[in-house]
Design a binder for these strands. Structure first.
Lengths: 239, 239
DNA sequence: GTACTACATGATGTATACAGCAGGTATGCA
DNA sequence: TGCATACCTGCTGTATACATCATGTAGTAC
């Protein structure tokens, strides 16, 4: 946090509650705060450099997003993850995201600029497909996939749908970061994303939606497979 | 709010924030607080008999549910309603609720007690169908329909789906209360609910889902029809 | 008469003080 | 030695004080 040259804090545009919220959300997403970790307000006051009021507000907001569990008179904990919750998450996404990409497909059909953006991402995926496997490629892929997902979310007309999907993203990201990513998975995932892009760019909503469904099913299968092969990871998830 | 006989408040089980939240939600649902109404924290402090802290928490929670709009440094207003928002709401419900009733159908198939509850509601709808139109019948219908909806929500296994649908209910209820109900609508709606019950009780998820879809489409058409015929109502909604 | 500026008012964002409850710990007793 | 109870610490829920900012108004210059 920088101080204005003049000397006084310039009454920052974003509230401290926003800052605390963002930082906590990020730490939960990254897995730095493991599921189940108790979140004492006073401890956060020290760590975040804000008073209890914005800290409390951030915790309440996170609880509303399902990232934190609040027990009355007992405080907050980072929300736990169970196998059932993973299944629920992906089932729900499988319900929402095909509808979202259909709307994005329609939107792109009428907005050349949007079409260009998606076309550029398609090129990016194609390039990634030709690169040799490496941690750097994996990182690049997840970055691009993230941009793609946000583009779809942004092109979703229905506000409820858009907000709900956006709210699910941190949960998915957290799962990715908690269960160590299978490098093998990138290979398949690139193909799936290419199929999504192709359907979307062709104006074929059904095809794009089918690609999303397939992608989600594969993702879930991979995660569950990882858990089955590595019971330790399951402990990570369930702890 | 009652005081304990001994003299002191027994540290009520529910927090004041909960109470304020519930009261405000109800007033918004009932239309007592019209869309766009400014909600000053201090005014609410007086009216609700709580201090700013729980009032603020209630407002933030309502904002998370989309019932209140927060403008930084400018305060809260009851969220506005536009034609687009109505369409978005019903489109979204049309995406979620068929899936929910499919899960409820499966749940009922394996839970005799649940089946009995739904069967009882079916009987209630059938009885309503034979009654002569009257305000009392309309009230009874909406009460029963509400119980039915909550039963479906309760029987929805997927937690995300369940929470999301539950969060949409106040929005729908508000629309009903803002746009004066068409008594004619009850006639058709009873039939639609009977079809939902039949599908659900027969274990036919597809049929139940189709009935929900039909019901939502009809509801939306009715609301829009009302708005078209009575521009004054539109002003109510848009104001 | 109109537009712009300075100010006064009231609100929100934040910090902090106080009250009551939950959980752990130590002590007493069997 | 094991268990039950009482205490004690720390936390959450609430109330309130203070700082900063947005809005409306009065006044003035053109």
């Amino acid at each position: 946090m920088t101080t204005a040259p003049g000397g006084r804090e310039p009454a920052s545009d974003v509230s401290k509650a926003d800052l605390v919220h963002r930082r906590l959300k990020e730490e939960i997403e990254l897995g730095e705060l493991a599921p189940g970790t108790p979140l004492s307000e006073l401890a956060l006051v020290d760590r975040m450099g804000a008073s209890r009021t914005p800290v409390r507000e951030a915790l309440r907001r996170l609880a509303g997003e399902g990232l934190v569990e609040l027990a009355p008179r007992q405080g907050a904990r980072v929300s736990r993850v169970s196998l059932q919750s993973v299944r629920d998450l992906f089932d729900f996404r499988a319900l929402l995201e095909p509808a979202a990409i259909r709307q994005a497909t329609e939107a792109a059909a009428g907005a050349p600029e949007l079409r260009r953006a998606f076309a550029a991402m398609r090129t990016g995926f194609a390039r990634l497909q030709r690169r040799a496997p490496s941690p750097a490629r994996s990182r690049a892929f997840y970055e691009l996939a993230d941009r793609f997902d946000w583009a779809v979310i942004g092109a979703t007309r229905n506000e409820h749908l858009r907000r709900t999907i956006a709210e699910l993203r941190p949960h998915t990201a957290r799962l990715r970061n908690l269960s160590h990513i299978d490098p093998q998975r990138v290979e398949v995932s690139v193909v799936e994303h290419l199929r999504m892009c192709d359907g979307l760019l062709a104006g074929d909503g059904d095809e794009a939606a089918a690609a999303v469904t397939e992608h989600l099913a594969q993702s879930l299968r991979t995660i569950f497979g990882n858990l089955a092969r590595a019971p330790g990871a399951a402990l990570d998830l369930l702890g």
